[in-house]
């Protein structure tokens, strides 16, 4: 039970790091997709959307093979480390953040783009305004990305190895303790996980409400 708080903190640290990485990758992609009209854009759009439902175990397996000592990136020594978990969750969250933020920004561009352009703003200059207007939608995108990472177990179990004190998170502990028949600890962590998810949703709703 002394491991309880470190497990919760480790889970949050990994998932928030992954969400931050996915935001850095996903938001610019969303903006380029929303404002630009360039060759290959439809293809990228289809790809981003098809990656929304990427199965975590497959991401875990592929990354495991790549990060394994015999794999292409084995030299990094990342297998069975938190870095590998952040990487896996970033892969899972980036398409979600890119797709949802793209929709939000594009809707604002559709509504206000002409007006912004008429007032002399270039697409690049209009972007900050659009992002501000699409704040609620973008917040939802980030929350969806975070929700995906913090609740995911398939990928982190494979690339993290569920090592006590190093790569053991809330979801992998729940899997382990259920296997031991320790439903009390599994349920307690489950409740914390649900609590985090509800808190995150509430925060986003408040941000959205403030806007209106």
């Amino acid at each position: 039970m002394g491991e309880f708080l470190p497990i919760v903190l480790r889970s949050l640290a990994v998932s928030l790091s992954a969400t931050a990485c996915a935001t850095v990758l996903g938001l610019p992609l969303a903006a380029i997709l929303a404002l630009g009209r360039w060759p290959g854009r439809p293809l990228v759009l289809v790809m981003v959307h098809s990656l929304l439902g990427l199965p975590p175990v497959v991401v875990g397996l592929v990354l495991y093979l790549l990060l394994s000592r015999g794999g292409a990136f084995g030299g990094l020594g990342w297998l069975y480390t938190p870095e590998a978990m952040v990487l896996a969750q970033t892969v899972l969250a980036t398409p979600i953040i890119a797709a949802l933020a793209h929709r939000a920004i594009e809707a604002r561009w559709h509504d206000y783009g002409r007006a912004l352009q008429a007032s002399g703003a270039s697409r690049l200059r209009a972007l900050p305004h659009l992002m501000r207007m699409a704040k609620g939608g973008i917040a939802t995108a980030l929350l969806a990305g975070f929700g995906r990472t913090v609740s995911e177990v398939g990928a982190v179990l494979i690339v993290g190895g569920n090592i006590a004190g190093v790569t053991r998170t809330m979801t992998t502990t729940i899997t382990l303790e259920t296997g031991k028949g320790n439903f009390d600890l599994a349920l307690a962590l489950g409740l914390v996980l649900v609590g985090i998810s509800i808190t995150a949703s509430a925060v986003v709703l408040i941000i959205g409400g403030e806007r209106q």
Partner: peptide
Amino acid sequence: MRAFLAILLLLT
């Protein structure tokens, strides 16, 4: 956010 990254670094 930065605080959590710091925690991650400490943990690892």
